[in-house]
C-alpha cells in the first residue's frame, strides 16, 4: 500500500532522516519507536506530504506522493504531535471545519461527527470552546478531526504526549478500534509499551535510521535475550555467592545487600542449581524476580542508551 524507499531529510547540516525504508501493508498497524530526536516526526511528516524528502521516494498504491501529493492527501488522516485545533471555536465547530475541509457536508457530516465524537468520548462537550477542554480532551478531539473522512491511512504522531493515564487508555483503545475497522495505522511513540500494545510490526529508529524492524518477538530474537533475575536471600554468605558464580547460566552476577542479580543465559534452564547453592550453605530464598527482555531492553542492547534518555 505504502512504500517508503531510502528517504533522506536534513535541516541545514543536521541529518534528521538518513535513508529509511519500510513498507506498510493495507490494514496493518505499524509503529515507529525511538527516543526524542530519532527522526520519527520528520519521517512521518514526509509521508503526510508536509514536506518533501531531499532524496528517496514514497509510493502510495505505486504512485509517487512526492510528485503528486494529491494522490494520498484525501485518503490520509494526520494526527500531529501538537494540538492542531482552533482554541476559540467549539469542539463542534472544529469538527465541522475539518470535516468540510475533506469534502464532507450536510447530514453525512453530522452523522460522522456523532460517530467520531462517540469514539473519542467527547460527545457531551462538543458545544464548549476548545480552550476550556482538558489536555486529554484536546488530544482526543485532535484525533477526531483526522478521522471524520474515513481515511484509509492514519498517521499518529505521538498522540499521547503529556496526558493523564485515563485519557491515554481512551486514546489507545480508540486507535485499536480504528484499526479494527480497517484503517491502516502508522503510529509513532517513544513509549515502548504503547507500541507493544498496538502494533503488529515495529520499526526502531535512532539518529535518523531504522536500526531494527519486525514483530516484537522477532526484535527480541535479534538480540542475546538474557532474562534479568533478582534473588532476595536471607543469610547470604561469600561461599554461597562463590558457588552461584560457578553456575554457567548465571552471568554478570552482582550482589547488593541481601540481593543477588544476574542475567540468565539460555531459555531452557531451571533454577535448581541456584536454589541448591543457597540451601546447601544454610541460606533461605525469600523471593525471585525474573524480568523478560522487552523493546526497551532491545533498544538498550542496540544503542547502548535507554529509550527515554
Amino acid at each position: 500500500m505504502l512504500d517508503i524507499i531510502d528517504i533522506h531529510k536534513a535541516y541545514n547540516k543536521t541529518k534528521a532522516v538518513e535513508g529509511i525504508s519500510f513498507q506498510v501493508k493495507k490494514g496493518e498497524m505499524i509503529g515507529l519507536l525511538g527516543p526524542n530526536g530519532a527522526g520519527k516526526s520528520t519521517a512521518i511528516s514526509m509521508i503526510a506530504t508536509l514536506f518533501k524528502p531531499d532524496r528517496g521516494e514514497i509510493l502510495y498504491q505505486g504512485e509517487s506522493i512526492i510528485k503528486n501529493p494529491k494522490v494520498i492527501q484525501s485518503k490520509l488522516g494526520f494526527v500531529p504531535q501538537e494540538i492542531a485545533l482552533y482554541p476559540t471555536l467549539t469542539g463542534m465547530d472544529n469538527l465541522k471545519f475539518w470535516g468540510r475541509t475533506y469534502g464532507l457536508k450536510g447530514s453525512h457530516l453530522k452523522e460522522k461527527i456523532n460517530e467520531i465524537s462517540e469514539i473519542i468520548g467527547i460527545r457531551d462537550r462538543l458545544k464548549e470552546r476548545v480552550d476550556k477542554y482538558s489536555g486529554g480532551m484536546k488530544r482526543r478531539l485532535n484525533i477526531g478531526c483526522a478521522l471524520l473522512h474515513n481515511p484509509e491511512i492514519i498517521i499518529f504522531d505521538e498522540p499521547t504526549v503529556g496526558i493523564d493515564p485515563q485519557s491515554r487508555n481512551h486514546i489507545l483503545n480508540a486507535v485499536k478500534e480504528i484499526n479494527r475497522r480497517g484503517a491502516t495505522v502508522i503510529y509513532t511513540s517513544h513509549y515502548m509499551e504503547e507500541v507493544e500494545f498496538l502494533c503488529q510490526r515495529i520499526c526502531i529508529m535512532d539518529q535518523g535510521k531504522i536500526i531494527a524492524s519486525g514483530t516484537k518477538d522477532e526484535l527480541i530474537g535479534t538480540i542475546d535475550s538474557d532474562e534479568k533475575t533478582t534473588l532476595k536471600v536471607e543469610g547470604l554468605t561469600e561461599k554461597m555467592i562463590e558457588k552461584m558464580r560457578e553456575i554457567s547460566y548465571a552471568r554478570n552476577l552482582v550482589v547488593s545487600d541481601d540481593s543477588v542479580i544476574f542475567n540468565r543465559k539460555g531459555n531452557h534452564v531451571n533454577y535448581s542449581e541456584i536454589i541448591d547453592a543457597i540451601s546447601q550453605e544454610g541460606g533461605k530464598l525469600l523471593s525471585m524476580d525474573v524480568q523478560k527482555p522487552d523493546l526497551e531492553y532491545v533498544f538498550l542492547q542496540l544503542t547502548g542508551r535507554a529509550l527515554r534518555d
Partner: peptide
C-alpha cells in the same frame, strides 16, 4: 503556532 496551518497543508485543500 497552533499547528492548524500544517494540518491544512496535508489536507486536499
Amino acid at each position: 503556532q497552533q499547528n492548524t496551518w500544517q494540518r491544512k497543508l496535508v489536507s486536499p485543500v
